Structures are given as C-alpha cells and as structure tokens.
Amino acid sequence: NKFNKELGWATWEIFNLPNLNGVQVKAFIDSLRDDPSQSANLLAEAKKLNDAQA
C-alpha cells in the first residue's frame, strides 16, 4: 500500500544521510515505524538535521 512504499523510501533515504549518527538514524526509523503516515515530515526533519550537521 501507499504507506509501505513511502515508509520504505523514507527509511532508505534516512539510512543514506551521511551526517546522521547511528542513534539519530535509529530514532528517525523508530518514529517512521510508529507512524508511517508521517514519513514525509520525518524525512524532511532528518534532512534538516543532516544539513545542520554537515
């Protein structure tokens, strides 16, 4: 379904953000699993944090 596809894509993108540490990645992935409907918002937050830590 739509959420599974978005969840998978967001998970892959978060895993590939180079400036996040393992704890941050795990926290974002756990949040995605808790509420897949928020995948776009969580991915945006992860990208912002990644950019801030560059």
Rank of each mutant, 00 (worst) to 15 (best):
W12R: 08
Q38D: 07
G8H: 14
L43A: 03
Q24P: 00
E45F: 10
R33C: 14
W12C: 10
S31T: 05
L20F: 01
F28Y: 05
N41P: 09
A46K: 00
F15D: 02
A10K: 04
L7N: 05
D30Q: 14
L43G: 01
R33K: 10
I29K: 02
I29C: 08
L32A: 03
A44C: 12
N19M: 05
Q53P: 02
A54T: 08
D35S: 06
N21L: 11
S37E: 06
N41M: 13
N19G: 03
L49K: 03
K5S: 14
A54Y: 08
Q24E: 02
L42G: 01
A52S: 09
N19H: 13
A46H: 01
D34W: 09
D35G: 02
L42I: 15
Q24H: 02
F3G: 09
A40H: 11
W12S: 06
D34P: 01
I14N: 01
N50W: 02
G8I: 15
K2V: 11
E6D: 11
F28T: 00
W12H: 07
S39N: 04
A44V: 09
L7E: 07
K26G: 04
K2F: 12
A40D: 08
E13V: 15
I29Q: 02
D34C: 10
E45C: 12
P36W: 06
I29T: 03
L17H: 01
A52Y: 09
S31R: 15
K48L: 08
N4F: 12
A54G: 11
L20K: 00
A52D: 07
F28M: 02
F3Y: 10
F15Y: 14
A54W: 08
S37Y: 06
A46R: 00
N1A: 05
F3N: 10
W12K: 06
G22W: 15
N41Q: 13
L7H: 04
I29E: 02
Q53D: 02
Q24V: 02
P18L: 10
N16M: 10
A52L: 13
Q38G: 05
P18G: 06
F28H: 00
N21C: 09
A40C: 15
N1L: 09
K47S: 03
Q38A: 07
V23M: 12
S37V: 04
Q53E: 04
I14G: 02
N4R: 06
A52I: 11
L17W: 02
A10I: 15
I29L: 13
L7A: 08
L20A: 00
K47C: 06
K48E: 07
L43E: 01
A40P: 05
Q24W: 03
Q53R: 04
V25D: 00
N21S: 14
L17I: 01
S39Y: 15
W9N: 07
L17T: 01
A46V: 02
R33Y: 15
E13I: 15
A27D: 05
F3I: 12
N41E: 12
W9C: 13
R33E: 06
N1E: 11
E6S: 10
S37P: 02
E6K: 07
F28A: 00
P36C: 05
N41V: 13
W12G: 04
P36Q: 03
N1S: 05
T11I: 15
A27I: 08
Q24C: 03
D35N: 12
L43D: 01
K48D: 04
N4I: 10
A27L: 11
P36R: 03
E45Q: 12
S39M: 14
T11P: 04
G22L: 13
L32D: 00
N4A: 09
W9M: 11
T11D: 04
L20T: 00
A10D: 04
E45H: 08
A10Q: 06
A10E: 05
N1R: 05
D30G: 06
N21Y: 08
K48F: 09
F3M: 09
F28Q: 00
A52W: 08
E13A: 12
E13H: 10
L7M: 09
R33W: 15
K47H: 08
K48S: 08
P36E: 02
Q53A: 04
P18I: 07
L49N: 02
L42W: 03
T11N: 05
L20D: 00
F15S: 09
A54F: 08
L42T: 06
L20S: 00
K47E: 03
A40M: 13
D51Q: 09
L32C: 04
A27H: 13
T11C: 15
A44F: 10
A27P: 00
A46Y: 04
D30A: 13
W9Y: 11
S37D: 06
S39A: 14
K5M: 09
L42F: 04
D34R: 14
L43C: 03
N4G: 11
N19P: 00
S37H: 04
A46D: 00
V23A: 15
K26C: 14
K47A: 04
N21Q: 06
N50M: 01
W12L: 07
S37R: 07
F28S: 00
A44E: 14
S39T: 13
I14W: 03
N1F: 04
N19T: 02
W12T: 05
N1P: 11
S31Q: 14
L49P: 01
E13Q: 13
A10P: 04
F28D: 00
L32E: 00
A27Q: 11
G22I: 12
R33H: 12
N21W: 12
K2H: 13
I14A: 02
A54R: 07
L43S: 01
V25Y: 04
L32R: 00
K26Q: 10
N16Y: 05
E45W: 10
K5T: 14
N19Q: 03
N21P: 01
A44G: 04
Q24S: 01
N21H: 07
L32T: 01
L42R: 03
F3W: 10
K26S: 06
N41W: 14
L42D: 00
K2R: 12
F15L: 12
